[in-house]
Computed example of a mutant assay.
Amino acid sequence: MERFLSLPFYLCAIGLIFSCQTVSSDQQNSERVKEAGPSPDQLIVVSVEEWSDFQGVLQAFERNDQGRWEEAFDAFPIVIGKNGLALGIHQLKGNQALKREGDLKTPAGMFSIGSAFGYAPKPLPGINLSYHPVTAQTMCIEDTASQFYNQILEEDEVQADWSSTDRMLRKDNLYEWGFFLNHNSPDAVPQAGSCIFFHIWRGADRGTAGCTAMSPENMIKLLEWIDPQKHPVVIQAPRSEALFFPSIPTVDSLANSSLDLIRMGGFFQDSNRPVNQSGR
Rank of each mutant, 00 (worst) to 15 (best):
P77S: 13
E71P: 13
Q42D: 04
L98A: 03
Q27N: 14
Q91A: 08
I78Q: 00
W51I: 03
P40Y: 11
I80V: 14
Q28Y: 14
V33I: 12
Q28W: 11
V46I: 14
H90L: 08
G56I: 03
K34P: 07
Q28M: 08
K82F: 04
V46M: 08
E71T: 15
R100W: 04
A86H: 10
A60H: 09
Q28I: 10
G88Y: 07
I44E: 00
S30Y: 12
D74W: 00
W51M: 02
L87T: 13
Q66D: 06
Q59A: 08
L85T: 06
V23A: 10
F76H: 05
I89C: 05
Q91V: 08
V48H: 00
A86R: 12
L58G: 01
G102R: 12
I89F: 05
V45Y: 01
P38D: 06
D65Q: 15
S30A: 11
D65C: 06
A97M: 14
I89P: 00
S25Q: 07
L98K: 08
Q28N: 09
P38F: 05
R100E: 15
G81T: 09
W51N: 01
Q28T: 13
A86G: 09
K82H: 09
S39R: 08
F61A: 10
Q28A: 11
H90A: 10
C20S: 10
P40V: 14
I80S: 02
Q59V: 06
T22W: 10
E35V: 07
D74A: 07
D65H: 14
K93I: 04
F54W: 01
Q59W: 02
S47D: 15
L43M: 15
L92K: 15
S30Q: 15
P38E: 07
F76A: 07
G88S: 09
L98E: 10
S19M: 08
K82E: 11
A72T: 08
F54Y: 02
R68V: 12
Q96P: 05
E50Y: 12
N29I: 12
A36N: 00
A86E: 11
A86Y: 05
V48F: 00
P38N: 09
G88H: 08
S30R: 13
L85I: 05
S39H: 10
E101H: 03
R100V: 11
F76D: 03
Q55K: 15
R68Q: 14
G94L: 06
A60I: 15
S19T: 07
S52W: 06
N64Q: 03
F76M: 07
V57Y: 15
E101A: 00
G84H: 05
H90F: 09
E35G: 02
D74L: 01
I44S: 00
E70D: 11
R63T: 10
G94M: 07
V46Q: 13
R68T: 11
K99I: 01
Q91W: 04
S25H: 10
V57P: 00
S52P: 01
V46P: 01
V46F: 09
D53P: 00
R32I: 14
N29V: 14
F61I: 12
A86K: 09
Q55S: 12
A97P: 14
P77E: 14
V23H: 10
D53G: 03
